[in-house]
Amino acid sequence: MSGLSALRERYERFDPRAYLDNNYGPPRADFSSEEFVVPWKLRCLADTFGTGEIHGRTLIDVGSGPTIYQLLSACDHFEEIVATDYLAVNREELRRWVRGDPGTFDWSPFIQHVCKIEGRGEPWQDKERRLRARLRRILPIDVHRREPLGAPLQPRADALLSAFCLEAVSPDRAAFSRALTNAASLLRPGGHAVLLGALGESFYVAGPARLPVLPLDEGDVRRALSGAGFELRQLRSYAMPPALRTGVDDVEGVFFAHALKAGGE
């Protein structure tokens, strides 16, 4: 537990706004081409949720951080979105966006881009309102507990989403695998899991916080999913180009995974 305790202590210095500016402003959030990392992530999510295969009553986003972009394509297919994060500052950042408080991070370019690539021609403001209406619960979570939300979720979620969380809060591969298994307990058998994460990253900065990351490769992702009882349906990867290596981290790439939890019909 010493590694986890040290990690938790470091996260007390996490600055949500610095994290957002580092990762979701230019140059990474350049929407002129899908060669940039943010449009690539949004395309993966739009393509996967656009099949209509992943749907239901509840989707849980594990370790939402201060971001909502990962929920934009998912929100059309669920009655309720449950956001979660370990840090109170991130949960409050999400609540401020849901309320429409002034001074929150401007997600409108992301929403406009998702509406464009989904191709339904809807006004982006409609999607923004829909996500705000469906983002009904923002809960504390600890993926290193066997009950990550503190108590069993009933009924369990139809789908699980997690973006750049598990590798950032796990000191080693065993902890990463356990965290994924714990998160999977929130999902019903036969439910879908959609994961985004970093490849080959050892640190990132968020204001005064310099935070360690477990460097993963695709093999690590495959083994952890299998060990947590998932059948891998899709695994894509993105190599971070030199122009996007801005010094706020040492990430080499990004993975996108879609998997199905065993035990369904």
Results as ranks from 00 to 15, higher is better:
residue 152 P to C: 08
residue 19 Y to D: 11
residue 174 A to V: 15
residue 75 C to P: 12
residue 87 L to A: 07
residue 29 A to I: 03
residue 243 A to V: 12
residue 226 S to P: 00
residue 230 F to H: 03
residue 198 A to S: 04
residue 37 V to Q: 10
residue 66 P to A: 03
residue 34 E to L: 12
residue 72 L to P: 08
residue 249 D to C: 09
residue 15 D to N: 14
residue 255 F to C: 03
residue 89 V to L: 09
residue 209 A to P: 12
residue 176 F to G: 01
residue 131 L to T: 03
residue 177 S to D: 06
residue 21 D to A: 15
residue 193 A to Q: 04
residue 160 L to S: 01
residue 34 E to P: 14
residue 92 E to L: 01
residue 89 V to S: 15
residue 199 L to Y: 02
residue 185 S to I: 04
residue 75 C to Q: 08
residue 121 G to Y: 08
residue 173 R to A: 10
residue 81 I to N: 05
residue 173 R to H: 12
residue 169 V to P: 02
residue 128 E to N: 11
residue 165 C to W: 00
residue 96 R to N: 04
residue 261 K to N: 04
residue 137 R to W: 09
residue 256 F to V: 01
residue 87 L to E: 02
residue 134 R to N: 09
residue 98 V to E: 02
residue 79 E to T: 14
residue 91 R to A: 02
residue 10 R to Q: 14
residue 21 D to P: 03
residue 139 L to W: 10
residue 115 C to F: 08
residue 260 L to W: 15
residue 41 K to T: 07
residue 201 E to R: 14
residue 197 G to W: 04
residue 172 D to N: 14
residue 222 R to C: 04
residue 150 G to P: 09
residue 131 L to I: 06
residue 211 L to Y: 09
residue 99 R to F: 02
residue 25 G to W: 11
residue 209 A to I: 11
residue 181 T to F: 10
residue 169 V to D: 01
residue 11 Y to A: 04
residue 72 L to V: 06
residue 136 R to D: 03
residue 114 V to D: 03
residue 178 R to T: 04
residue 126 D to P: 01
residue 254 V to P: 00
residue 227 G to E: 14
residue 207 G to C: 12
residue 132 R to F: 09
residue 116 K to H: 13
residue 30 D to T: 05
residue 196 L to W: 12
residue 15 D to V: 12
residue 230 F to R: 06
residue 142 D to H: 04
residue 44 C to E: 07
residue 153 L to A: 08
residue 245 R to G: 05
residue 30 D to S: 10
residue 244 L to T: 00
residue 191 G to F: 07
residue 134 R to I: 11
residue 139 L to V: 13
residue 249 D to A: 11
residue 198 A to E: 00
residue 78 F to M: 12
residue 255 F to H: 11
residue 208 P to D: 07
residue 231 E to S: 14
residue 71 L to T: 07
residue 196 L to H: 13
residue 28 R to A: 06
residue 100 G to L: 15
residue 89 V to E: 08
residue 155 P to W: 12
residue 84 T to I: 14
residue 238 Y to W: 12
residue 121 G to P: 05
residue 199 L to I: 13
residue 106 D to S: 05
residue 88 A to K: 10
residue 104 T to M: 10
residue 188 R to D: 10
residue 121 G to D: 02
residue 127 K to N: 01
residue 173 R to V: 04
residue 43 R to T: 11
residue 116 K to N: 09
residue 183 A to W: 11
residue 220 D to L: 02
residue 91 R to V: 00
residue 46 A to I: 15
residue 58 T to S: 04
residue 91 R to D: 04
residue 38 V to Q: 14
residue 104 T to E: 10
residue 175 A to M: 11
residue 10 R to F: 06
residue 72 L to R: 05
residue 118 E to R: 15
residue 202 S to D: 11
residue 211 L to A: 15
residue 102 P to H: 05
residue 160 L to V: 00
residue 105 F to G: 00
residue 236 R to M: 09
residue 54 I to G: 01
residue 193 A to L: 15
residue 254 V to M: 14
residue 260 L to A: 10
residue 224 A to M: 09
residue 143 V to D: 01
residue 127 K to Y: 05
residue 239 A to H: 12
residue 143 V to Y: 05
residue 90 N to C: 13
residue 50 G to N: 03
residue 107 W to Y: 12
residue 159 A to V: 08
residue 243 A to R: 14
residue 34 E to N: 06
residue 221 V to E: 00
residue 141 I to Y: 08
residue 157 A to E: 06
residue 135 L to G: 03
residue 124 W to D: 08
residue 1 M to Y: 08
residue 96 R to S: 03
residue 104 T to D: 02
residue 200 G to W: 02
residue 210 R to M: 11
residue 147 E to F: 14
